[in-house]
Design a protein around this nucleic acid. Structure first.
Length: 313
DNA sequence: AATTGTTTAATCCAAT
DNA sequence: ATTGGATTAAACAATT
């Protein structure tokens, strides 16, 4: 191949499966749920490769959404007009990429069908649960944060309180791949920095990922010809911004989501306090019309049925 | 009509 | 070599 001009690497195919791309998109937004069109947008915004052949990959993506139990459909409420449902990650899907590859999961996340006598794990239960979650997130956002500068519309990296991080959370993905030699992890950064956007680190961490709002300010740095997403030199991550906290964080709170009951985020606090995110400018309706959680609706443990999801052999 | 969602099937390919 | 996850194509229903 002739020497590619600069930037040409960025339109090579990113080393992520549709599943991981979709998970990124979902995890990257404040509500942790997105309509199909927003998932498309997220991917196209950040990965130039996917600005072409849209028919092909979007069909594939849709197939993945329907086919994989790790994605659940959340119906729009009357106050959320628009086309199509929201898509979210099943709360029990666990760390599907714990093997460190975003191309290929260790196991497929499958819901048990008609688990003999256990409570059936209705996707709708999960959906309802996540609806509530989203509501709470939004009300928390509304309550806490109009005072911080807006970023790119996707609240990447800054989301949930320090204790639990969904395995798909961007910060976890990064942390898993770019562990400090000395044992430092990145995942604590945003929780430590109390709401400072991490998009710089993110774009750097994913060489193939654009963040249009960021590309102006951050040079493509070292990624040069190095296509290996996992061999990313840590320095290029470090130099962007704050100092690293020397506090390792449990990346996988429950290492074994083993047969039967997997780790449910039962302890997700009802407030995402310091999340500074303004809502996505690209989806006005989600930004404006979300009603705050109804008085009675406090966050409870997820439906028991949710726990009967399992990564199946 | 276009978008969104579901499903089946073939094929590719990485891990084992 | 086998297994099984990922990708792609395609047909079709449902929704807006």
């Amino acid at each position: 191949m002739p020497r590619p001009g600069r930037n040409t690497y960025s339109d090579q195919k990113p080393p992520y499966s549709y599943i991981s791309l979709t998970a990124m998109a979902i995890q990257g937004c404040p509500e942790k749920m997105l309509p199909l069109s927003e998932i498309y947008k997220f991917i196209m915004d950040r990965f130039p490769y996917y600005r072409e052949n849209t028919q092909r990959w979007q069909n594939s993506l849709r197939h993945n959404l329907s086919f994989n139990d790790c994605f659940i459909k959340i119906p729009r409420r009357p106050d959320q007009p628009g086309k199509g449902s929201f898509w979210a990650l099943h709360p029990s899907c666990g760390d599907m990429f714990e093997n460190g590859s975003f191309l290929r999961r260790r196991k497929r996340f499958k819901l048990m069908l008609a688990a003999d006598h256990l409570a059936p794990s209705k996707p709708s239960d999960a959906a309802h649960y996540l609806q509530q979650q989203a509501k709470l997130r939004l009300s928390a956002l509304a309550a806490s944060g109009t005072h911080l500068p807006p970023m790119s519309g996707y609240n990447i990296g800054v989301s949930q309180p320090s204790t639990f991080k969904h395995p798909f959370a961007i910060e976890n993905i990064i942390a898993r791949e770019y562990k400090m030699p000395g044992g430092l992890a990145f995942s604590t950064m945003q929780s430590m920095s109390a709401g400072y956007p991490l998009h710089n680190q993110l774009t750097t961490a994913w060489p193939h990922m654009y963040s249009s709002s960021v590309m102006d300010t951050i040079a493509p740095i070292t990624m040069a010809g190095d296509y290996s997403p996992y061999g990313m030199p840590l320095k290029s991550l470090c130099h962007v911004g704050q100092t690293l906290p020397a506090i390792p964080v449990p990346i996988k709170p429950t290492p074994a989501s083993l047969p039967g009951l997997s780790a449910m985020p039962t302890h997700i606090p009802a407030f995402l306090a310091h999340s500074p995110q303004s809502l996505s400018p690209t989806s006005p309706q989600t930004a404006t019309s979300q009603s705050p959680a109804a008085p009675g609706e406090t966050l409870t443990s997820p439906p028991a049925g949710l726990q009967s999801a399992v990564a199946v052999h």
